[in-house]
């Protein structure tokens, strides 16, 4: 289990730099096998979509990646363009975003509801600000070093607020935003940690077609302008087919296909497991409803 050498990802062409390498990822809950021996590679500056029917284990992959679950078996390697290589499965949950630069959003949006939109984005820059405030001691006595750092943090927040069209609502509580705005705010918040890999869990769920198109543009812009990799769980096929560079298909916790959108579209196994089912067309509403129900449970 040495973390060095032998890290030559197989399936991808040599030109692309691999950002995330998932090898033999397996997750068991008691007797239940949620994901079984999944391997794939997500390249830098690409949008990789993970698709599959409900219960295929997509969110579990995310939870393993972002440290919420410890995988039963498997290796998760992140090659950060600046900071080097990280073994995600061995890292403590909160260090994965802080050090390896893996940011994520959640299926059922998790904002800091009582805090303002701006504060949500400032909290995301916690570690930078914490250092600048001298772990609060310098901040408490009001050294200018901290106020300068805070001003920079506000600037970055303002940049992302402009990008997601929320500048006007900056001082309102996050919970008071409409649903679509909350989704975009969560993406902006994740981007504020300056990630190398952004993991989005059903970002288009519950959005109307116009919002969904805006989202596509935003995600493409993030890829092109910020040069980071995106990992996307999505049910909305217009989003998936429209913007992904690479698609990974899961079914019952297994990887059944891996390739470009064109390859996936014509893959018989995928068609059988996923795209062939009629009811997928109107999934967004269903998913949105699903989420509403879940929230009431919370």
């Amino acid at each position: 289990m040495s973390p060095s050498s032998q890290m030559q990802p197989g399936p991808e062409p040599a030109v692309k730099k691999s950002l995330l390498v998932v090898e033999h990822l397996t997750m068991r809950f008691g007797g239940l096998i949620a994901i079984n021996d999944i391997s794939f590679v997500a390249a830098d500056r690409e949008i990789t979509a993970i698709i599959g029917p409900n219960g295929a284990g997509k969110t579990t992959v995310f939870n393993c990646l972002t440290g919420f679950y410890e995988p039963t078996i498997g290796r998760l390697t992140l090659n950060h363009p600046q900071r080097g290589r990280f073994m995600l499965e061995r890292m403590e949950g909160h260090l994965i975003p802080a050090q390896a630069g893996v940011a994520r959003t959640f299926q059922n949006i998790r904002l800091f509801g009582a805090m303002s939109v701006l504060e949500n984005l400032i909290v995301a820059q916690h570690n930078t600000l914490m250092r600048a405030s001298g772990f609060s001691f310098a901040g408490l006595i009001g050294l200018p070093r901290y106020s300068r750092a805070e001003a920079r943090a506000v600037e970055r927040a303002r940049y992302w607020l402009d990008r997601v069209n929320l500048t006007a609502r900056a001082d309102d509580p996050a919970a008071s935003l409409p649903y679509g705005d909350q989704r975009r705010l969560e993406i902006a918040r994740a981007m504020c940690i300056e990630p190398a890999l952004l993991c989005l869990d059903e970002p288009a769920a519950g959005l109307n077609p116009r919002e969904s198109a805006d989202l596509n543009r935003l995600l493409l812009d993030i890829r092109n302008e910020h040069g980071i990799g995106l990992l996307l769980i999505e049910h909305d096929m217009t989003v998936v087919m429209g913007i992904s560079d690479h698609i990974v298909v899961l079914d019952y916790g297994r990887l059944i296909a891996d390739g470009t959108p064109e390859e996936i579209r014509s893959n018989p196994a995928v068609v059988r497991a996923y795209l062939g089912e009629e009811e997928d067309e109107d999934l967004p509403e269903e998913v949105a409803h699903d989420i509403d129900v879940k929230r009431e449970d919370d």
């Binding site: 909160h94 998790r110 800091f112 805090m115 909290v123 916690h126």
Partner: peptide, 23 residues
């Protein structure tokens, strides 16, 4: 200060905090 904001964020949603690199 960042700690204070992190406290409030933690009160609102601990899981989101973890995903933002807050210990």
């Amino acid at each position: 200060l960042p700690v204070g904001r992190a406290w409030e964020a933690l009160r609102e949603d601990e899981i989101a905090c973890r995903s933002l690199g807050i210990n």
